[in-house]
Design a binder for these strands. Structure first.
Length: 258
DNA sequence: ATGTCCCTCGACGAGGGA
């Protein structure tokens, strides 16, 4: 079973790219982030015509997440990260698909740091860690995936020294990611490629993709049940080279059937 | 500080976010 995550940066502006990628790579489960569309403007019909069921949590202008499946029923189990009734940003959706609990997230960017946006990011991380502890305790197969807006280590940044003060790489954020993983999760892409430079995002500025000035910020965390079922994974980085493309590339893993 | 691209409002570009 192939599971993918893709920050589309506008699901409607990106629709031709998204549909082409779905058609060419046929993932079984797809987590999308940054829909940048309210719920009623989600392109449900085009996605259904492409062969996918979908659940989504939209919002006007910003954020927005969705889970798509091909030939598999989706049972939504939540669309809010618990812990803050004041948080109205659509950054989280969770479902059961084919015996796996799938959590799709779009973690706050957090810039500029320090500041209220950075505090929101750290608070979001704290709530996430509490919730993932609950998921672990359920003792079922879980995949947590999406745009974490964190480069976990220096290997995940083209020029680490330039990003030290950025909200995607500050020590507090790297520590939060490290502590989250230490609960018992496996960073699937890093497990498959322990020493390689792997990027999932290239800025639109300054020809970042052409220079391979990238970041690894889209991740898969696997519960202990799934660690041994991980058979492959990678980044569809060529998609980043398409016309009218997102600044992220799709990332995917392959999970064997139990 | 810059660069680019998305979104919205609602004007014929500007501003916010990333």
């Amino acid at each position: 079973m192939k599971i993918a995550t893709y920050n589309v940066n506008g699901v409607n502006g990106r629709l031709p790219v998204l549909l082409r990628w779905l058609q060419e790579t046929t993932p079984d489960i797809v987590c999308l982030q940054e829909l940048k569309a309210p719920g009623e403007k989600f392109p449900e019909e085009a996605i259904r015509d492409a062969g996918y069921n979908a659940i989504w949590h939209g919002q006007k202008s910003w954020n927005g997440v969705a889970i798509l499946t091909r030939n598999l029923p989706i049972e939504e189990v939540g669309r809010v990260l618990p812990g803050d009734p004041e948080d109205v940003q659509s950054r989280y959706i969770e479902a059961n698909v084919n015996g796996i609990r799938i959590a799709c997230l779009y973690l706050p960017n957090g810039n500029p740091a320090p500041g209220p946006k950075f505090d929101y990011k750290l608070g979001w991380f704290k709530r996430l860690a509490a919730h993932t502890q609950t998921l672990l305790a359920m003792d079922v197969p879980v995949v947590i995936t999406g745009d974490f807006n964190v480069m976990p280590t220096e290997l995940d940044v083209y020029k680490p020294e330039r990003w030290l003060d950025d909200a995607l790489f500050r020590p507090e954020v790297r520590a939060a990611f490290r502590e989250l993983v230490a609960q018992g999760w496996t960073d699937a892409i890093r497990k498959l490629y322990p020493d390689e430079k792997i990027y999932t995002f290239w800025d639109y500025f300054r020809n970042a993709y052409g220079r391979d000035a990238g970041l690894r910020i889209d991740h898969f965390l696997l519960s202990p049940h799934l660690e041994g079922r991980l058979t492959a994974g990678g980044v569809d980085r060529y998609v980043r080279g398409w016309e009218k493309t997102s600044d992220h590339a799709p990332v995917w893993i392959e999970i064997s059937e139990s």
